[in-house]
Amino acid sequence: MNLRPLPAIMFEALVRAALLEDLGRAGDITTDAIIAKYHHATTVLAARQAGVVAGLDLAMLAFRLIDPDVEISVARPDGSNVMEGEVIASVIGPARAILTAERTALNFLCHLSGVATATASIVAAVRWHDAKIVCTRKTTPGLRAVEKYAVRAGGGSNHRFGLDDAILIKDNHIAIAGGIRSAIERARNSAGHLVKIEVEVDTLAQLEEVLGFAPDAVLLDNMSLEHLRRAVAIVGGRAITEASGTITSDTARAIAATGVDLISIGRLTHSAPILDIGLDYRSS
């Protein structure tokens, strides 16, 4: 997998804020009381269950922000499939720093690996079809960039990143604007030449009306499999087709078989369970 890492400037503030939240007003009083200042330790980040790794850069930064002398050797980089018990990375250095940063590092690593693992499961389910699995804006506040990165680590793709990089006209936009024509015409008059326009529809009649205004993409919301097949035929390649609406790994394969181009899934980021990863002590 050719996974491009995120520049540290995109997540350093997140990691710093998380560490500051955990350190509170007096720092790690447990570790400082129990562990000698110059004690060194060898530990490993190990998978407690099979999955896909994501978020190692955030975990590594957490350790190094506490003490730059912490050394990390990565065995299974982001995007790697790991088995239960497999070592992801070794973390060696001042024991106090390792213990103090442990929870923050694991919070990021477990969460983002969970997103990558959930994504990989659905990507695998549709592997015999052309549909791409994409995430949505249903992300944890403040974590959008890293959660969308984790989707890519799991083999998925990204939908728009925010309200400012594409126009997506949904049902409430249409209702308040007074209809599909009014909404699309206003959007087209406002959009720059590089901004794409997508319109959400939930009936075939709406789809036919929308296609008359030549959108770049159509969002086929909560349609049955039969309606999705018919929608793809109606579009006939004139626009990108995107299916959405409570999609799981059990239903994604059948949806992909209808011929849609994209399958968008909010739960990849808002409801993915963590991947259980632990920090295990090996030696002094």
Rank of each mutant, 00 (worst) to 15 (best):
A95P: 06
D216K: 05
L225A: 13
T251W: 13
R4S: 15
F63S: 12
R186W: 04
E209N: 01
G27C: 00
D32A: 14
E208K: 15
N222L: 13
E209D: 11
S80M: 02
V151I: 03
S182I: 01
G237N: 05
L143G: 09
V232S: 10
I35H: 09
G245V: 08
A101Y: 02
V210N: 14
G93K: 00
L65A: 09
L19S: 11
T43Q: 02
R230Y: 07
R144C: 12
G155L: 06
A47S: 00
I255R: 09
L65K: 02
A101R: 01
L204M: 03
A217Y: 10
I29V: 12
E209W: 01
Y149Q: 15
R137M: 11
L168S: 00
I184E: 05
M1G: 14
E21N: 14
L143I: 07
I88K: 01
L112S: 03
R188L: 04
E102F: 07
A257S: 09
D280W: 00
L168G: 03
L204T: 08
P141C: 12
A175L: 08
M10Y: 12
V115P: 01
A17T: 13
R160K: 01
S157D: 09
L279C: 05
L207P: 02
T100P: 02
A17Y: 09
A17W: 07
P141W: 05
I35K: 07
T136W: 12
R230D: 13
I240A: 06
A75W: 10
D250H: 10
H111D: 00
L211Q: 13
G154P: 12
G179R: 06
P77I: 02
G237Y: 06
E71N: 11
D164W: 07
I98V: 13
N189M: 06
R253A: 11
L143K: 10
R267M: 04
D164P: 00
L56M: 07
P215H: 13
P7T: 15
V91A: 10
A54Q: 09
Q206L: 08
P5T: 15
S271G: 08
K196S: 06
T43D: 00
A252N: 07
D57W: 04
R230I: 01
A124M: 12
T258W: 03
R267Y: 08
I265N: 05
V70A: 14
P77D: 04
